[in-house]
Amino acid sequence: MVKQISVFIENKSGRMAEATRAISDAGVNIRALAVADTSELGVLRLICDDMDKALGALKDAGFTATANNVIAAQVPDRPGGLADLLEKLRDNGINVEYLYAYFTKTTDNAVVIIRVDDKEKTAETLEGGGIRLLSPEEVYSV
């Protein structure tokens, strides 16, 4: 299963910089990143080329950080690529908690990271619908 790191960030200046610096100081490269926030706090979600090292570096720097499972799906980089995927989930009654996407350097596809409750059903639905899911190695090394 593909993992992502989630970091608790208070809404105060410099914290995002400190979190990303902690990761870079560990020699880890960030592949994808998304931030969710309210007026007072935020959650930074990350995918890196070395997840264990990144998680350790964040914790050492005093951040509350956890690793959790997500689904990484490959979608074609064209209009409707993402909509097709989301419709399949909707038609199967799967609720998306959040998602974010990024491009890869080497292919014409985008990668969508999806956080859902029922990962198995989501995986079956997407694969059954002809959408390729990426392995952890593929995601971390894009």
């Binding site: 992502q4 989630s6 608790f8 706090l41 959650v43 509350t64 959790n68 959040y98 956080r115």
Partner: peptide, 15 residues
């Protein structure tokens, strides 16, 4: 203070 035990990666969970 938010410890790992009570931290949620979802804003909804934190709220």
């Amino acid at each position: 203070e938010v410890s790992e035990k009570i931290f949620s990666d979802e804003i909804k969970g934190l709220e």
